[in-house]
Amino acid sequence: MTIDAARAQDPPERLSTHDARQRLEHERNSRLSQLNALAASEHHAADDLLSVQLDAIQRVLKEIDLAFERLDAGTYGTCQGCSTAIPVERLEILPYARCCVGCQRRTA
């Protein structure tokens, strides 16, 4: 059996609940820091840009909250599109991802 064949038979790697929770907490804290910095900013000349930034951060915070719910429900790391495991590499970069890359592309 070749190494590639053995790898194909291995179950997909998953983030532990502890690691996932830590990554999500880090993301939440980062976004809250960004939100606080924008709120404290005195640069209101570009209110439209500020509004867009605030909306984007709020959307990500909602996605993070939904990821915590999936973690508690035991469905974290499972693609909501095709029900396969979301690759660990994707979750390391985007811990609140709901879909694998393929399903994300199809919905975009």
Rank of each mutant, 00 (worst) to 15 (best):
Met1Arg: 07
Thr2Ala: 07
Asp4Pro: 02
Asp4Asn: 09
Arg7Phe: 05
Ala8Phe: 03
Gln9Ala: 15
Gln9Ser: 11
Asp10Asn: 15
Asp10Thr: 13
Pro11Gly: 08
Pro11Val: 08
Pro11Asn: 10
Pro12Asp: 13
Pro12Lys: 13
Pro12Phe: 11
Glu13Ile: 05
Glu13Ala: 14
Glu13Tyr: 00
Glu13Gly: 02
Arg14Lys: 14
Ser16Met: 12
Thr17Ser: 15
Thr17Arg: 15
Asp19Val: 11
Asp19Ile: 03
Asp19Phe: 03
Ala20Leu: 09
Arg21Met: 08
Arg21Val: 06
Gln22Asn: 14
Gln22Leu: 14
Arg23Phe: 11
Arg23Asp: 12
Leu24Asp: 00
Leu24Gly: 08
Leu24Glu: 07
Leu24His: 08
Glu25Leu: 12
Glu27Gln: 10
Arg28Trp: 03
Asn29Ser: 09
Ser30Gly: 09
Ser30Leu: 12
Ser30Ala: 12
Arg31Lys: 05
Leu32Phe: 02
Leu32Pro: 01
Ser33Thr: 12
Gln34Ala: 08
Gln34Met: 14
Leu35Trp: 12
Asn36Phe: 04
Asn36Pro: 00
Asn36Val: 05
Ala37Ile: 10
Ala37Gln: 15
Leu38Cys: 09
Leu38His: 14
Leu38Lys: 13
Ala39Asn: 15
Ala39Ser: 11
Ala40Pro: 04
Ala40Glu: 14
Ser41Pro: 02
Glu42Asn: 08
Glu42Val: 01
Glu42Pro: 00
His43Leu: 12
His44Ser: 15
His44Asn: 12
His44Tyr: 13
Ala45Glu: 13
Asp47Ser: 06
Asp48Gln: 13
Leu49Thr: 04
Leu50Pro: 02
Val52Lys: 11
Val52Thr: 10
Gln53Pro: 01
Leu54Ser: 08
Asp55Ala: 14
Ala56Val: 05
Ala56His: 06
Ile57Gly: 02
Ile57Pro: 01
Gln58Trp: 04
Gln58Leu: 01
Val60Gln: 05
Val60Ile: 13
Val60Asn: 01
Val60Thr: 09
Leu61Ser: 07
Leu61Phe: 07
Glu63Gly: 11
Leu66Thr: 03
Phe68Gln: 03
Phe68Pro: 02
Glu69Ala: 10
Leu71Ser: 04
Asp72Pro: 00
Asp72Leu: 07
Gly74Cys: 03
Tyr76Thr: 04
Gly77Asn: 05
Gly77His: 00
Gly77Asp: 02
Cys79Phe: 14
Gln80Thr: 01
Gln80Trp: 00
Gln80Pro: 00
Gln80Asp: 08
Gln80Gly: 11
Gly81Ser: 11
Cys82Pro: 09
Ala85Lys: 06
Glu89Ser: 04
Glu89Asp: 04
Glu89Met: 01
Arg90Pro: 01
Arg90Ile: 05
Arg90Gly: 07
Leu91Glu: 02
Glu92Trp: 04
Glu92Met: 00
Ile93Glu: 02
Ile93Ser: 06
Ile93Asp: 02
Leu94Pro: 00
Leu94Gln: 05
Leu94Cys: 03
Pro95Met: 04
Pro95Leu: 07
Tyr96Ile: 01
Tyr96Thr: 02
Tyr96Ala: 09
Ala97Asp: 00
Arg98Pro: 04
Cys99Asn: 07
Cys99Pro: 00
Cys100His: 07
Cys103Phe: 07
Gln104Asn: 09
Arg105Glu: 10
Arg106Val: 12
Arg106Ser: 12
Arg106Met: 13
Arg106Cys: 09
Thr107Gln: 15
Ala108Thr: 12
Ala108Glu: 15
